[in-house]
Simulated assay, not measured.
Amino acid sequence: MLDACAGKDRSVSTPSRDRSPAAVDLFERCTRVRCRPVAKLVLMVLALDVDERGAVRSSVATISHQSGYSLRAVQRGIQELERDGHLTRFHSRGRGAFTELHPRIGDA
């Protein structure tokens, strides 16, 4: 979709790789998580980029672009998801940070 005001392409781009049944299941579970809309969309965007080991390495800027939310809104969404136990962030030297998703369905 083209943003008429800014003249920028605001389409959500998803990786063009085939999804494993586990990745599809993860995304489906993310759609059923009960949380604020910003946090839910952040979780769903992260689920689209999970690798074969279950890790996500998307930057806040990438998530912001794909979701249409501001950088700060995405940061707050990630903090909420981490606080509520839906994801865990890991930081390691030389390998960068990554996120592991474990959506908790039915939790408020």
Rank of each mutant, 00 (worst) to 15 (best):
M1A: 13
C5V: 12
G7T: 07
K8Q: 13
R10V: 15
R10N: 05
S11H: 10
V12E: 10
S13Y: 15
S20A: 12
S20H: 09
S20W: 08
P21T: 05
V24E: 11
V24K: 09
V24G: 08
V24F: 00
F27D: 04
E28W: 08
E28F: 09
R29M: 13
R29G: 02
C30D: 01
C30T: 01
C30K: 07
C30M: 01
R32P: 02
R32C: 04
V33P: 02
R34T: 13
R34K: 12
R34C: 05
C35I: 13
C35D: 09
C35V: 13
C35S: 14
P37Y: 02
V38E: 13
V38P: 04
A39R: 01
A39M: 05
K40V: 07
L41W: 03
L41R: 11
L41S: 03
M44V: 03
M44Q: 14
V45K: 07
V45R: 12
L46Q: 10
A47N: 08
L48E: 07
L48S: 08
D49I: 02
D49P: 03
V50W: 01
V50C: 02
D51E: 13
D51P: 05
E52I: 04
R53Q: 14
G54Y: 15
S59W: 01
A61H: 06
I63D: 04
H65I: 05
S67R: 03
S67G: 14
G68D: 00
R72A: 14
V74G: 01
Q75P: 02
Q75F: 03
R76A: 06
R76K: 12
G77D: 05
Q79M: 09
L81M: 08
L81F: 01
L81H: 02
E82W: 00
E82T: 15
D84P: 00
D84Q: 08
G85V: 05
G85L: 09
L87I: 15
L87T: 07
L87N: 04
T88Q: 10
R89E: 10
F90Y: 10
F90R: 07
H91T: 15
H91W: 00
H91C: 06
R93N: 05
G94P: 01
G94W: 15
G94Y: 15
G94T: 04
R95Y: 05
R95G: 04
G96K: 03
A97I: 00
T99L: 14
T99A: 04
E100M: 12
L101T: 02
L101S: 00
P103T: 11
R104T: 07
I105R: 15
I105K: 04
I105T: 11
G106R: 01
G106D: 01
D107Y: 07
D107A: 10
D107H: 13
A108L: 10
